[in-house]
Design a protein around this nucleic acid. Structure first.
Ligand SMILES: [Zn+2]
Ligand SMILES: [Zn+2]
Ligand SMILES: [Zn+2]
Ligand SMILES: [Zn+2]
Lengths: 181, 181
DNA sequence: TATAGATCTGTTATAATATAACATAATGAA
DNA sequence: TTCATTATGTTATATTATAACAGATCTATA
């Protein structure tokens, strides 16, 4: 990836889904700027409530992550940041991403080695709502799911194995409804 | 990682679990050599049935992957192969791993960027049994689960979203029963 | 407000994982 | 055997991520 994907991200904002909707694949053409605003707004509140500092750099990286509902690579973000600030080194972006992930504002998609804004921070604070994704291999959209049956199945099998869950990576890739022949 | 983990792998074979057992975390102290034998044996059969060539290199890489029930990094495998063959370059190991993954004999754990032998090749040929793992962050054992409820939950949520599944990454990390205080 | 400790950011270098591209060798079918 | 295909060797490089340390900024409290 690199420049093409960055450019692609530029174009996606208005064709994309709303994170407030249960199935974003079904909600194209939404006003994505409201997604960004509410994500940044929520992030401010969440950080201040937790006594953490959403510095201008971190805020800007979060904003860049939220340019669309597609996962973004760390080096794509780096390129975007370099466009506005000149030389920026990898640790700058990785530290910001680490902070944002720690705060539950961003998730890393291990299957793509890429990052995406959390569709519902705060939900992860509750009993057991880990981040579970559907990822379209054609249009690239990634949707964070909340599914009680899935949560229950995972809790159940862990319980039967006596296993204490710390982290969950659940990433289902395939074709979204719109991208199937 | 690197040398330490390679050495660690050397020691693990006799403390490890049997992939024929439903919950391998509960079956330590098994005779791991039988795991290796049956994995290689099954691989030969599977490849010949599919008209694929399990060459000496591929077979040896599979054997190295099966040294234990812990995920192994590509560069750890490379080091092991170099010990026996002198200079070996990364593409050698990556090509063998790609073949083994394509044949369903090995899985890549995205959350660890590491590889592990498939506990039940053939099961993935059936209707819908993707590879789902429990991974202990303390002892490092990774266990491939088969859970109908989990399969069902994933199929159900995909169906409701009209999503056509191509790949599943399901890796649950935490502490196995033996490693909890 | 001054100052010290803590946290954040900048900077350089490098580690760890993975692939592209092309040359040579082994295999298998005709 | 001969040719086409597949597998392996080899060199170089891409991609993702972190270590280590210096300098700047913020915060608390004297
Ligand atoms: Zn989330
Ligand atoms: Zn799609
Ligand atoms: Zn498997
Ligand atoms: Zn354990």
């Amino acid at each position: 990836m690199a420049k093409e994907i960055v450019d692609d991200q530029l174009a996606q904002n208005q064709l994309v889904t709303n994170h407030l909707v249960e199935n974003p694949f079904a909600a194209r053409g939404h006003d994505h700027s409201s997604c960004i605003v509410s994500a940044l707004d929520g992030a401010e509140k969440r950080c201040s409530r937790r006594g953490e500092r959403l510095t201008p750099l971190r805020r800007r990286v979060l904003e860049l992550v939220w340019r669309g509902h597609r996962p973004v690579g760390a080096y794509d973000l780096l390129a975007l940041l370099q466009d506005e600030r000149g030389r920026v080194a990898p640790p700058t972006i990785y530290r910001a991403l680490e902070f944002l992930c720690d705060q539950g504002l961003v998730h890393r998609l291990d299957s793509l080695q890429a990052f995406i804004g959390c569709g519902h921070p705060g939900a992860h604070d509750e009993a057991h709502h880990a981040a579970h994704f559907l990822i379209c291999q054609d249009c690239g959209l990634a949707v964070e799911m909340r599914d009680g049956q899935l949560d229950g199945a995972i809790l159940g099998l862990a319980a039967r194995a006596g296993f204490a869950i710390a982290d969950e990576t659940v990433e289902i890739s395939g074709l979204c409804a719109d991208c199937q022949v």
